[in-house]
């Protein structure tokens, strides 16, 4: 039959690769019980689900694994692993598969977000723009809302207790969404700061599946926060 799988010629490179790079994945432990499928929001989209994905490894369906778009519909939410009796981390296996794909065959926007992130932030706006927007919005609030005349939005304040980041969407698309957070922090009275060098709260380099890119961007952030000498790193999402 046309779609017959000849197991005597079963390919094991991909399966072994997963086991090499991610030994605790438990890939082979799958009981094919279907618990993941029933809990997966991406199940039965494009005819795939976590169980079938794992089965393709077991049966050596390497071409299919390396070409399916399902790995971009799976959101790596980890709900499968949450209940899986064998604790199989399908999400991380998906990341590995994404990372094995040549960059030019990955969803363009996803890869671009990461490339931009490596350069500073995922939107690609210059850091000066962020500084300017924050200052502008702060000034406007102080003027329009007299009760908040003392509002602060410190940037690069060395020695502040808290470092704060901000999703790049706010300074670029909806800058007014930054104000409520400032007001809360002001009311609580903590000593905080942004960094003009690394202010983006997202890290899109996790998603394309290149751990090196993820690590590189994270190291940059860590350097920035430690350089400021902040005791706490607040993530806003």
């Amino acid at each position: 039959m046309e779609n017959t799988i000849d197991l005597s010629r079963r390919k094991e490179e991909l399966r072994n690769h997963i086991k090499d790079v991610f030994p605790e994945s438990n890939l082979d432990y799958c009981l094919t019980c279907g618990m993941c499928v029933s809990g997966c929001p991406a199940a039965d989209i494009e005819g795939l689900d976590p169980r079938k994905l794992l089965r393709m490894f077991v049966l050596g369906q390497e071409e299919e694994l390396l070409s399916t778009r399902w790995i971009y519909t799976c959101t790596v939410c980890g709900r499968c692993k949450h209940a899986c009796p064998m604790g199989i981390d399908v999400g991380r296996i998906v990341y590995v598969l994404r990372g094995m794909r040549p960059k030019d065959q990955r969803p363009a926007n996803l890869q671009r977000s990461c490339e931009l992130q490596k350069a500073g932030n995922s939107t690609g706006i210059p850091n000066e723009d962020f500084v300017w927007v924050v200052g502008d919005v702060l000034e406007e609030t102080r003027q329009n809302e007299p009760e908040w005349a003392g509002l602060q939005a410190p940037i690069d304040k060395a020695g502040a207790e808290y470092y704060l980041n901000q999703n790049a969407k706010e300074p670029t698309v909806e800058p007014e969404e930054m104000v409520p957070l400032w007001k809360i922090l002001h009311r609580v009275g903590i000593d905080w700061t942004y960094s003009s060098k690394w202010w983006d709260g997202a890290n899109y380099c996790l998603f394309p599946g290149d751990p090196k890119d993820w690590e590189e961007t994270l190291r940059k952030q860590v350097e920035v926060v430690d350089a400021l000498g902040c005791r706490y790193y607040i993530n806003t999402e």
Partner: peptide, 9 residues
């Protein structure tokens, strides 16, 4: 195969 529903040899 009981998962992929494909014939195996």
């Amino acid at each position: 195969d009981h998962v992929l529903k494909r014939p195996l040899v």
